[in-house]
Design a protein around this nucleic acid. Structure first.
Length: 883
RNA sequence: GGGCGGUUAGCUCAGCGGUAGAGCACUUGCUCGACACGCAAGGGGUCACAAGUUCAAUCCUUGUACCGCCCACCA
């Protein structure tokens, strides 16, 4: 006997262990089944499960389970990402706590520490995924710094270098002074900041006056190399070619003309600080051949002023230097005015410190070239985004893509396979031996210290995890993947780069055919969850409290396309209740011997009641299939929810109760068989969504062959079942009948416990027959003492209409006549309004002429029906008035 | 500045050319032997605003107003 409530805690671990042990998560490259591949976006090794993971992994797991049940050879490829900066940060923080730091320790020793940390703590998220019920092919789990994947990274680097698609360049990069590394453009977040605009006067060298400029970063004045004005600006025409004196450091700089300058902004003159500003650098490049413009770097890598500054600035923090120069400018009377100014300031997405444009040598990928086929693939539909509007975002980014800076001044990551000889000449090769062979035996080579951007290795994930560059069976079977399921926040970081790398290295073949982009999870108020806001809902807490099934179902039900998912505990509670409901339905079935029986054939059932529920199961399955096909998880979840609760529990089980108590034996047996069968189908259909409770019930309600699990069961196929319309009509009638009586009773305050008599007038033969047949169900569900079809409505009886028949409840002594009059009047009024609206339509010649015939027919039918009911209710109202 | 999305019941959101839906909340009844994490019956919406297309618009088009997010170097 099942317990009274379902306790997820008791069974989740047991089933997961059993599932994993069964080997059912495994892909089988050797099988001849159609493959279905999902690449799991590898979470950071430093990560722990948050709601975003819970959502994306649930969607992936549901898809994987669904495809697996549909006889696909499903590969859900799991793994983790080494997460360069994030991981190095974690370990450095630990070192700091122990009073150590990585530079004292040295690179090798430090890396040893990181690996040690990875072994000890890197498995957290992977363990947590198991609690969600995720079923990827664990034995294939990869790490982006695994031997094989690292080899793939080296090969990709070397090949791209040979093709001229990777190169070294000296230009401005986004420099993170906290981590002291370069960052790519997309690792920089621009935030609106309230700053100041300082207006500063630069004296002209010839003493003939001064020229005024405005700046938001006065400390960079110390590195000024020129002043620029617009070539057409009359105001400054005569100054071009002259020189000005930089305040405070007294450097003489030229005044040049460049179209970049906007005459209307500020004073119309701009200082040019080529080593610390992207635009200024561009100006510098345009003029450096004709005008000598100093290119001065005034900062150390950790954001302090260097020796290129006046002595009293050297060593100052960049923000201190800003304060000091403002003070100095003011004292020296160069500062003309200060305005408040709102502008965008770049911050490192991990370090959260202000990023400096900084002039360094870095490695770049020629993203523009790689982007072309990646764009083409989506334009031609080889890869499709769902929902489609994300393609615009993808196009927009790739069409404007800049060179991708891939070198990072970190230690944790894939070290760049480049060596330098003493003259600084570079040799790129898979190994030091090969580099030496290139350089010649007499050269001493030093390896590039830098490592690659973490996303460089993630970009290879769809093929590096399958054994590339070897031609493995996995690679040929599971590439390209069927669908990539991920959030929009990493379309640039990851999706686009996988497209570029995949197409380039896999002979033009895209890495996945579909990209399903889901929303981000927010809190109940729609705010982004973050630790600092303290509004984080921990999925593990939710699992502890409500069970993994409830969490999964909540995420699915709210995963409608193109919207944020607002997570609130009340919703989870609701779906926990749903699990309990199912549990109790199964418990009821168990108590009534309605369990799955060997040999039951749903095609053979005779009773319309049973035919109806079987047909409903089939329709539900169709709805789920349709929804899954379109990645409409919320619709799939809604369909099965509605069927279980609204159809099976609320109607079918209630219909059949009286027949099970007293009915003829054949019918009883058929009901038992049908109920058991439906319950089994429910478990199958719900399994991908709520794997734990369904697996538990599956095991409890029937003896199965040893080792049979829902996990590895087949998705049902009802194509052989066909049920006539008549059963559906008949049960629909029964539902309407019961609803109508219940509604009347409630409206008229008939005591809930009172059994009353039902009189049905003007009943057709069919209705009479049905009343007789379903008498037990009607009596019990509508609480009737008797049902008759002939007789006369007594004075004060209440009337209503179901189809052709008038139902009469002789409850005169129980009800308030005024209330009944009001009820009838209200209904009649509503019907009149409907009829009027329909008449208006039908009276419109254009409508009749243009609307499809079936729409016109439908309107006519509705009108007739409304008129029929109205007439009968009017008669009833007259009768009461007469009484 | 560009792009995308949103505005539907008290709240959170589905729906998307022909009778407005769900969950929660609310009201009123219910110890009908599965379930109060429940059952039954209800109340509640000029589908942001304006114009247009159409026989017909919550749904399509255009515009307006708010609200989000993403991208963008204006000192």
């Amino acid at each position: 006997m099942l317990d009274k409530t379902f306790n997820p805690k008791d069974i989740e671990e047991k089933h997961y262990t059993d599932w994993e042990g069964s080997g059912a998560f495994a892909a089988h490259p050797e099988s001849n089944k159609t493959p279905f591949t999902i690449m799991m976006p590898p979470p950071n090794v430093t990560g722990s499960l948050h709601m975003g993971h819970a959502l994306t992994m649930t969607l992936q797991d549901v898809m994987t389970r669904y495809q697996r049940m549909n006889s696909k050879d499903a590969l859900w490829m799991p793994g983790t990402d080494h997460a360069g900066i994030a991981t190095q940060m974690v370990v450095e923080r630990q070192l700091a706590e122990a009073g150590e730091n990585r530079r004292d320790m040295g690179r090798d020793k430090f890396l040893e520490k990181v690996w040690q940390w990875k072994e000890e703590s890197g498995g957290t998220i992977v363990r947590q995924l198991r609690r969600l019920g995720a079923t990827p092919d664990w034995p294939r789990e990869r790490f982006t710094m695994d031997e094989g994947l690292s080899q793939a990274v080296l090969k990709v680097f070397v090949d791209l270098y040979k093709d001229g698609l990777i190169y070294r360049d000296k230009r401005l990069v986004n420099w993170d002074p906290k981590f002291q590394t370069a960052l790519s453009d997309i690792e920089v977040e621009h935030k609106e900041v309230k700053g100041k605009l300082w207006h500063v006067a630069y004296p002209l060298e010839d003493g003939s006056g001064s020229i005024s400029i405005a700046t938001t970063r006065p400390e960079t004045i110390l590195a000024d190399g020129a002043i620029a004005v617009h070539p057409d600006d009359e105001k400054y025409k005569d100054l071009v070619g002259k020189c000005a004196v930089v305040p405070v450091c007294n450097r003489i700089i030229p005044i040049i003309a460049d179209e970049y300058v906007q005459s209307e902004f500020g004073s119309g003159a701009v200082k040019i600080t080529a080593a610390h500003d992207y635009n200024d650098f561009e100006v510098y490049l345009r003029h450096k051949d004709t005008t000598e413009i100093p290119l001065i770097n005034l900062m150390t890598p950790d954001g302090h002023m260097n020796e290129n500054c006046p002595p009293d600035y050297v060593g100052l923090d960049r923000f201190e230097a800003r304060k000091k120069i403002v003070k100095d400018l003011d004292e020296l009377e160069y500062l003309e005015k200060v305005e408040d100014h709102v502008h965008q300031v770049p911050y490192g997405d991990r370090s959260c410190v202000v990023i400096e444009p900084y002039l360094t040598d870095q490695w770049y990928v020629d993203a523009k070239t790689l982007a072309k086929p990646a764009l083409e693939a989506v334009k031609t539909g080889k890869t499709e985004f769902v929902p489609k509007n994300w393609e615009n975002t993808y196009f927009d980014w790739l069409e404007n893509i800049q060179p991708w800076c891939i070198s990072r001044q970190l230690w944790w990551g894939h070290q760049i396979p480049a060596w330098y000889d003493e003259e600084g000449k570079v040799y790129v090769a898979m190994t030091e031996e090969e580099a030496k062979a290139q350089a010649g035996a007499d050269k001493t080579l030093t390896r590039d210290e830098d490592v690659l951007d973490t996303w460089f290795s993630s970009a290879l994930w769809p093929f590096s995890t399958l054994g590339w560059p070897d031609k493995t069976p996995e690679l040929s079977k599971y590439y390209p993947g069927d669908v990539l399921i991920t959030g929009f926040d990493i379309i640039f970081f990851w999706v686009a780069r996988m497209m570029m790398m995949g197409i380039h290295f896999m002979d033009g073949e895209v890495p996945f055919k579909k990209v399903y982009i889901h929303a981000l999870v927010r809190d109940g108020k729609g705010q982004k969850m973050s630790k600092s806001k303290g509004n984080v809902i921990d999925p593990l807490d939710i699992i502890d409290q409500y069970g993994a099934d409830a969490l999964r179902f909540t995420l699915l039900a709210m995963a409608a396309q193109g919207r944020d998912v607002k997570m609130s505990e009340e919703r989870v509670e609701g779906y926990r209740n749903f699990a309990t409901k199912l549990w109790n339905a199964a418990r009821y079935c168990e108590m009534n011997d309605c369990l799955p029986k060997e040999g039951f054939d749903p095609a053979s059932v005779q009773a319309p009641l049973n035919q109806w529920i079987i047909q409903s199961v089939s329709e539900t399955k169709t709805a789920i299939d349709k929804a899954m096909e379109a990645y409409r998880y919320n619709e799939a979840a809604g369909a099965i929810y509605q069927f279980i609760w609204g159809t099976f529990c609320d109607w079918y089980l209630e219909f059949t109760k009286p027949f099970l108590q007293s009915g003829d034996e054949a019918l009883k047996e058929e009901i038992k068989g049908t109920t058991g069968w439906v319950l089994d189908q429910i478990l199958l259909l719900l399994n991908p969504f709520m794997p734990y409770i369904t697996e538990e019930l599956f095991a409890q309600i029937a003896k199965r062959e040893e080792g049979t699990r829902l996990l590895s069961s087949d998705w049902p196929d009802y194509s052989a079942l066909s049920v006539g319309e008549s059963a559906m009509d008949e049960i629909s009638w029964l539902q309407r009948m019961i609803s109508e009586i219940r509604s009347l009773r409630a409206d008229l305050n008939v005591p809930a416990g009172a059994n009353i008599d039902l009189l049905v007038l003007e009943a057709s033969d069919q209705t009479k027959e049905r009343l007789k047949q379903y008498e037990p169900a009607l009596s019990q569900m509508a609480r009737l003492a008797s049902i008759s079809t002939d007789g006369e409505a007594k004075k004060g009886a209440v009337k209503s209409i179901v189809d052709e028949a008038t139902i009469v409840l002789p409850v005169a002594d129980l009800i308030d006549l005024d209330k009944e009059r009001a009820r009838l009047a209200k209904q009649i009024e509503k019907l009149e309004k409907d009829i009027e609206a329909i008449d208006k339509k039908l009276g419109n010649e254009k409508f009749v002429a243009n609307a499809p015939d079936e729409v016109v027919a439908e309107q006519k039918e509705r009108k007739a029906e409304a008129q029929n009911i109205r007439d009968k209710l009017s008669a009833a109202l007259e009768q009461i008035k007469a009484a």
